[in-house]
């Protein structure tokens, strides 16, 4: 097993280099560049003459040959320096670090909420397959899934912010949150979080509970369950001790794959709710061709993806004794 892990880690390095290379070249070859984007912000547009753009490109080092630029970036990366944003010259790590907790918090909570709700729902659906309960739960969850997020977000805002005034519609905290004591501060943060959280998680209920249900159904057909019943074990023990633990195997590995999603951040939700997360950061960087930030975010996501697939594969082998890697 350990040699397998070692091999995977070693293999991750060329994979990572491959990803960074491809991203780098796609970015640079796409039309548009950060100098033009930065200069066109002026209220008169005077800055956008070709001479000025050239000048800026020169200063930012964008006129060097692509491989040269790539190596420069790589060199800094090895020293754990992601460089500065080409838009506002702040350190990329700083910008990511600011947005990271917001996205992470929302995603993590959404994940927890989704799993807490979906697991029991999926198990019960499987238990009562084809009954009214199963059918109505299925339909209800699918209905929920089918609602377009823009719609839902707007509806939630209209209802809970405009009409009922229960929850705020933008930001992660109130203006005077710094002056609040512990408990009101927590409450304030939670209040701001609820609407985006709902938007983040509502689609997941259907997906995860379907997986759980499908996995349970599969396990229940197995011979060993029949044996357990024949042995006279209580139904309760059969389901929750024997079936469930086996059914959870693919779910656990699925969890491993959720990791990259944790840093995903949905651009739409973040923009509608003014939630300063990684989705917004990335989208903004893409639009302003902020190469360093894009590369920095790609590094982050790549590392996470590589880690999570490794984790997921390992978990799979650990949890299911039938699987082994040479």
């Amino acid at each position: 097993m350990w040699s397998y892990i070692l091999r995977r880690v070693l293999l991750a390095i060329p994979t990572f280099i491959g990803i960074s290379l491809i991203t780098f070249f796609i970015m640079h070859l796409a039309p548009g560049d950060p100098a033009t984007m930065a200069l066109q912000g002026d209220s008169i547009g005077k800055g956008m003459s070709a001479a000025n753009i050239e000048q800026m490109k020169e200063t930012l080092g964008l006129n060097d040959a692509l491989p040269v630029q790539y190596f420069r970036w790589m060199k800094r990366l090895v020293c754990l320096d992601l460089g500065e944003s080409l838009k506002d010259h702040r350190k990329v790590t700083e910008k990511i670090w600011e947005a990271l907790p917001n996205t992470l918090l929302l995603n993590l909570l959404a994940l927890i909420v989704v799993y807490i709700v979906s697991l029991p729902l999926g198990v019960f659906s499987a238990e009562k397959q084809n009954t009214f309960f199963d059918k109505s739960i299925t339909t209800a969850l699918f209905i929920l899934y089918a609602i377009p997020v823009i719609w839902l977000a707007l509806l939630l805002i209209m209802l809970f912010y405009v009409k009922l005034n229960w929850f705020p519609a933008s930001g992660i905290q109130s203006l005077d949150s710094e002056y609040m004591r512990w408990w009101p501060w927590l409450f304030d943060r939670l209040k701001h979080m609820i609407l985006p959280l709902v938007c983040f998680s509502y689609a997941g209920f259907a997906v995860i509970s379907r997986y759980v249900r499908s996995s349970m159904l599969e396990v229940i057909r197995q011979d060993y369950i029949r044996t357990a019943r024949a042995k006279g074990l209580s139904e309760h023990k059969v389901i929750y001790k024997h079936a469930l633990s086996n059914a959870l195997i693919p779910i656990v590995t699925l969890l491993g794959l959720e990791l990259p999603g944790l840093l995903g951040g949905s651009v739409i939700i973040e923009q509608i709710f003014s939630w300063p997360g990684l989705g917004w950061l990335f989208f903004d960087a893409l639009n302003s061709r902020d190469y360093t930030v894009i590369m920095g975010l790609t590094v982050f996501t790549s590392i996470l993806v590589l880690l999570s697939t490794l984790l997921s594969d390992i978990l799979y082998a650990v949890v299911d004794p039938r699987i082994h890697y040479e």
Partner: peptide
């Protein structure tokens, strides 16, 4: 937007 600007430029 960025592509648009490039074309205009």
């Amino acid at each position: 937007w960025a592509t648009f600007l490039e074309r205009i430029k």
